[in-house]
Design a protein around this nucleic acid. Sequence first.
DNA 1: TGATTCATGTCAGCATTCTGACATAGATTG
DNA 2: CAATCTATGTCAGAATGCTGACATGAATCA
Lengths: 150, 150
Amino acid sequence: MNQDGVNLERSLGYLLKEASSVLRAAMEEVLRPLGMSVTHYSCLELLAQRPGLSNSELARGAFVTRQSMNVLLQALEREGYVTRPAEAPVGKVLPTRLTPRGRRSLEKATVAVRSVEVRMLAGMTETEQSGAFRILQSMIRSLRDGNAGA
Amino acid sequence: MNQDGVNLERSLGYLLKEASSVLRAAMEEVLRPLGMSVTHYSCLELLAQRPGLSNSELARGAFVTRQSMNVLLQALEREGYVTRPAEAPVGKVLPTRLTPRGRRSLEKATVAVRSVEVRMLAGMTETEQSGAFRILQSMIRSLRDGNAGA
DNA sequence: TGATTCATGTCAGCATTCTGACATAGATTG
DNA sequence: CAATCTATGTCAGAATGCTGACATGAATCA
């Protein structure tokens, strides 16, 4: 139609947003029956793989602000899914850990999320998957590099 | 560390989320000086390429609910960037169009957003870009197809 | 050592988006 | 033709995430 716009039909940025949106919706769909949001799940998964992460580190890993993650952590702590020491062992950093209850809760969620990921990769060869991995990493690096300089 | 989790380091879903997050941040950064959000921009761009889209169609194109888009459209209409007829010409659908002011506003935003997209694609060959396009479309299709059946 | 810079946890207020609900117009179907 | 289904626009309330701000501990550095 017009040539001077960004041309959404052919824009990789638009397609990236669409893919991310569809993935998020699919994850929400399987996590909702478990009473868990995507950020909620991300937080637990990060803690399982890297026990002792701080609030700020979890926030960066889940792509939200540390303020948002703090709200979530307080709720998770209140409900017994994670624990944080009352006093910081060093500095202000409060290392967070999963409780057995948190670990059990995560197990179910992991199964659900993995099924979504498997579905997403259906019909893609190993080669295509590693190609996709490289390309996404390249995009991230390019955007981050130019970030400060812009 | 652990083998039975989703393994965020190697998960394409996690990488997709990261790429989308970085892209969104980069777009917000260049749009903020123009007083425009990403959804705001998406709405104007959609209207430029497909004049007369309805509120619901715009919502689907910008990946938000029609309720959210409605809030945005009312603000854009109030500020004179778009127009909608007072009465629906047919049914309840209100076709929306850019005003000259909206078009001018979009022009600046398009330049800014295009610079982000160019930066994102820096260092990728044509072949890699079309490969990325195919792969993202495949992911979207796979997730959508299994959607109803799940 | 003292000053500066940086990162962290946290509080408060605000913006954005979402879910739920309703009435209505068109399409579908018996 | 009547009933049902689907899609739309819109209102209201709630959830979620964000920006701004502050105090504090650690690291840097002059």
